[in-house]
Design a binder for these strands. Structure first.
Length: 459
DNA sequence: GTAGGGTTAG
């Protein structure tokens, strides 16, 4: 491909010379600008975004948002202004939850930190780590692998220190109340390494597998900015229609970062869909409260010749639960083994118990637990306990803390809440005393991911 | 190299 000089790229964006540039041509110019480094010129990103946004189809604004995310580090005041001018009010309020000057300052601050990290001579080991397994750490990497002429182990300290500094600006506590710890260190560190990789000009390039792993990490961390920048790379490097792994990763990432319409758009564009692609889309709709739409996916999936598996049914039942679709849920539970040959697991039973209890059918939920062919687990009891809150507010409370599985601090608290909801203060006190007597440790509350709903590339 | 149920202290 002919490589245009920087100045020529900027000329192409000039409205006086080329008043009507289409989306395809803009994408080509965009690619040229990345390759030639033209985007690092002042306001070049803003000019590009202005042209994307000027395309009449909704696609134009989608690309404007993608370009903005992708090149956020180069965004100057002019670029921010373009985004403000071009964004509809509701999108603007979502995408810039803080004031624009504050956001711009945050971008500048982050940029300085990143730049500082590159003054260290220790970039190579980090890049090397990205080549193989994005979640691997440089200090675990074989120093001799790859032969990239990187420095020795002694070089690694400064980079890691600096990359952790970047992370510390966006601290997120991903430890769950149940004690399960999301792989914050691994994913966050991978994210820092990946940022480095993206800025490595002419060197190591991420592979398709790196992209998939990174999308998964972004989904778990709620890293929309990084996730959508990876999307940008994918658009330029490979065709997402041809890869179920990439399509699945993108749908999941956008969904978990709160962008359902973006997830739906990617799903529609992904031609090769496997059972995981369908399942993440089902989970996305369930998570975003679109129970009916999730159930409708099952027929669509069958029509395409893909069979649902146990995970798909968990997502479908969960969708019914969130939408209060009792009949649909019970029907799915019944047909999953009979029609699809998927034996219900304790998780599936748990979903149905939740579904029944939430709509006030507590007796039926309890009978369902009693009739289960396997032992209920702690999560199932917990589900029942929490879902019973409404039903027991009328004055009927369970007899004691959950039995049959290890009760955790939050189980006592959930039960306490139920008593409280029913005004049964004596029971609340009794339970609190029992907790002290039994030495149940109070676990401090912790926050989870802050997910901002942003339909940024949606139509 | 990709996916899953509950939830947070009157």
């Amino acid at each position: 491909m002919l490589l245009l000089p920087r100045a020529r790229c900027l000329d192409l964006l000039g409205k006086t010379h080329f008043p009507s540039v289409g989306i395809e041509q803009l994408k080509q110019i965009h690619a040229q600008m990345i390759v030639s480094g033209a985007l690092r010129r002042d306001s070049a990103v803003g000019r590009l975004i202005e042209r994307y946004a000027g395309v009449s189809a909704p696609e134009g604004m989608n690309f404007a948002h993608l370009a903005f995310r992708y090149h956020a580090r180069e965004a100057d005041v002019f670029t921010w202004n373009v985004m403000i001018r071009r964004s509809p009010p509701q999108e603007l309020s979502c995408s810039t939850p803080v004031s624009v000057p504050a956001a711009a300052a945050a971008v500048a601050r982050r940029r300085r930190t990143i730049e500082r990290s590159f003054t260290s001579s220790a970039r190579a080991p980090a890049l090397l780590a990205c080549r193989g397994d994005a979640s691997s750490r440089p200090d675990r990497e074989d120093p001799g692998a790859g032969g990239h002429g990187c420095g020795g182990p002694n070089d690694r300290g400064p980079f890691l220190r600096e990359s952790r500094e970047i992370d510390s600006q966006e601290q997120r506590n991903v430890e769950r109340p149940d004690g399960r710890v999301l792989p914050r260190g691994g994913a966050a560190e991978a994210a820092a390494l990946f940022r480095d990789l993206l800025l490595d000009e002419g060197g190591t390039r991420p592979t398709e597998r790196t992209m998939v792993v990174m999308l998964s990490a972004c989904a778990r961390l709620g890293e929309l900015a990084l996730g959508s920048s990876i999307h940008g790379h994918i658009l330029k490097a490979i065709s997402i229609q041809d890869d179920a792994f990439i399509g699945t990763g993108l749908v999941d990432m956008y969904s978990k970062c709160g962008c359902l319409s973006s997830a739906q758009m990617i799903f529609a564009e992904t031609r090769e869909k496997n059972v995981l692609t369908w399942t993440v889309m089902t989970a996305a709709l369930a998570f975003h409260g679109r129970g009916e739409a999730a159930i409708e996916l099952l027929d669509a999936m069958l029509a395409e010749g893909v069979s649902p598996n146990a995970v798909t049914f968990t997502c479908l039942l969960s969708a019914c639960c969130h939408a209060g679709l009792v009949n649909e849920g019970l029907h799915l539970f019944e047909t999953m083994s009979r029609r699809f040959g998927v034996a219900p697991s304790v998780q599936h039973y748990g979903c149905v118990v939740d579904l029944l209890a939430r709509v006030g059918m507590v007796e039926e939920a309890l009978r369902f637990v009693t009739d289960m062919p396997m032992a209920p687990d702690a999560v199932l009891w917990r589900t029942l306990l929490c879902a019973c809150k409404e039903a027991t507010a009328a004055g009927r409370g369970p007899d004691g803390p959950p039995c049959g599985a290890a009760a955790a601090c939050e189980d006592y608290i959930a039960l306490s809440n139920i008593y409280a909801a029913g005004g049964m203060w004596g029971d609340v006190l009794r339970l609190r005393e029992a907790m002290k007597r039994d030495g149940v440790q109070n676990k401090p509350g912790s926050s989870s991911l802050q997910i901002k709903p942003e339909p940024l590339v949606g139509r």
